[in-house]
Design a protein around this nucleic acid. Structure first.
Lengths: 340, 340
DNA sequence: CTGAAAGCGCTTACAG
DNA sequence: CTGAAAGCGCTTACAG
């Protein structure tokens, strides 16, 4: 791709490269006439500054990196959309990578992004991530980093989260209030903070409402897939025929469970009530529609970029950085998979 | 972010920058000993080449741009995933932008990407795009460009598509074969090639099977949303109470229609059979499950990147470019929204 | 085998 | 108001 350079503009107008450069950036010490001339020629020749040269000089790429566990996922798509929208407004482009829930990949991709010299990184952790050296290293090197949704409390950077524990508490309490006495929980893997917090919210709600906590009612899922929902719904019935409610860590799994219950003739919510988590679009469409916790993905993306942008800006101006954790509101969406 | 430079390595070892650079790239005219020394020091100081400088010198960014109409969309997420996966393997990163189905935005974003000097661009057109100058300009400037899914036949570049006409024909024929006599069609806006082609496939199937084509049975939707599905399902019943089948341009709309029919007591497929298009995950989960055309998003993403990569490589080597159109297979997925 | 030099295309402090 | 010069950090053709 052949491109016009400042030098060519300068030659065309019999000016120096410096003057042309300054004219374009509206330096006050360039004459009006020269500025006009330069701008006309730029228009005429369709000059575009060479981003590579600008990057090298200014030491910034106006590009940020985004690492998420999985792209084909309603919640994360919404986050991506929020980030891209906000970033574009501020003149930033977004490089997206997918960790596939693998710690190794996540590490490699963080490396890739920092070699590319992105101006900052947004990340939602992989389920497999238990060690945080790769993140702390970035922070040490003063590369702006913001974590969202799947975070590590122990890493010292800005974060955007929801209150998973509180939301799970609300979900479980709603099951209790609607009359459920034996409530199971399908939880995520052991490591990620949000699956821990959702579990704790579930447990606390039981205990605070005088329902004894029974560990055998808690099922630990691996990949949080539709198929796991189908499988564990069946397993649950085999293990406990007295269960009358389930709080499920994520909607996709809940939808698998509902489908299985429909298939084998267990009535939702008459026999078993179900509450999911995330409010995927699908949840408003299956039958019965799914009661769930709405998790504001788009907002989360926007907030995360805002925090990152602030940090990038303050670093550039050598101002002190204060890390901040933004907590977004969730809400219970009452639908037909629960009684009431 | 402070970073080690070649110069620092050179000073540490009392070598010249040139020698260090060459040692790192395994030039044959550097001694084994020097190479070893350099590599050790690189490791020790954690040297990473400055991407900005490399870009400027080599005139490539190892980054490509991707423009899609909408990120929160099952099909496009799958495409993104395919592209990212393939790109990463070849050492390319992917910048994603969303056109929101707007021609103006699409133009602006193409501009953004070419100013960023990406090495190539993948694009699926916005519904609003009727003029192709912005695309032809890129091609003139020899910036590698590959279109996928929503393409413009008239633009001269490589493409990855499905045979929309054939797939729509198959879908409609399936309705006919299952006994439908009055078949409506919910189509997309007038401009995009794929909504034209799907309409033509529908029309041909009717005609070739002795069913007269009735334009009043064709509904033109605007944003192809769930809500439009709900709305037009109702409208259709008002306009024509004798319809017994609908071929719907995209699953999301079909799901809206099914939901509406369920609500008002129209039985699917007994009263009206429905075939969708795209095979969104959701379609396998609603009730009744949706018969649809499977559109291989992930494959399409991979194919599109492969074509782009080839073109980038050939341009770099100054080899002649032959544009290619890859057509991927679709298949009819038979489910419960049709009789049989 | 090693190094000095030119150059990629900008920006900006400095001189005039 | 304009321009020469240095420099961002690399790569590579050329000299020795």
């Amino acid at each position: 791709m052949k491109q016009v350079t400042l030098k060519q503009i300068a030659e065309t107008l019999n000016l120096s490269v410096s003057t042309v450069s300054k004219a374009l950036k509206d330096y006050p010490d360039v004459s009006k006439k020269t500025k006009r001339l330069v701008k006309e020629t730029v228009e005429l020749l369709n000059y575009k500054p060479n981003a590579f040269a600008v990057n090298l000089r200014t030491k910034e790429s106006k590009t940020i990196g985004l690492i998420i566990p999985e792209v084909v996922h309603h919640f994360f798509s919404s986050v991506i959309k929020g980030i891209i929208a906000k970033a574009e407004k501020k003149g930033y482009l977004v490089i997206i990578l997918q960790s596939n829930e693998s710690y190794e990949l996540e590490k490699k991709q963080l490396d890739l992004l920092s070699s590319k010299r992105v101006d900052g990184i947004l990340i939602s952790l992989a389920n497999g991530t238990a060690d945080f050296k790769h993140l702390n290293d970035l922070i040490l090197h003063e590369l702006p980093l913001v974590m969202f949704d799947k975070i590590a409390k122990i890493v010292n950077c800005s974060k955007v989260i929801i209150n998973d524990r509180k939301a799970a508490y609300t979900a479980t309490k709603y099951l209790i209030d609607s009359g459920c006495k034996r409530i199971a929980h399908f939880r995520g893997p052991l490591l990620p903070q949000n699956s821990i917090d959702r579990f704790l919210g579930y447990k606390n709600a039981l205990i605070e409402h005088g329902i004894s906590y029974d560990p055998s009612l808690v099922y630990i899922l691996k990949d949080m897939s539709y198929d796991e929902g189908v499988h564990f719904a069946g397993q649950l019935l085999k293990d406990h025929n007295d269960v009358d409610g389930i709080f499920i860590n994520t909607d996709l799994v809940a939808i698998g469970a509902i489908t299985e219950f429909n298939r084998i003739g267990v009535k939702v919510p008459e026999d078993i009530s179900i509450v999911g988590f995330s409010n995927w679009f699908m949840s408003s469409v299956i039958s019965p529609t799914l009661t769930t916790i709405d998790q504001p993905g788009y907002e989360m993306g926007k907030e995360a970029f805002k925090l990152l942008y602030k940090e990038i800006k303050r670093r550039k101006e050598n101002l002190p950085i204060k890390f901040k954790t933004v907590e977004l509101e969730t809400k219970l969406i009452k639908r037909a998979s629960t009684r009431n």
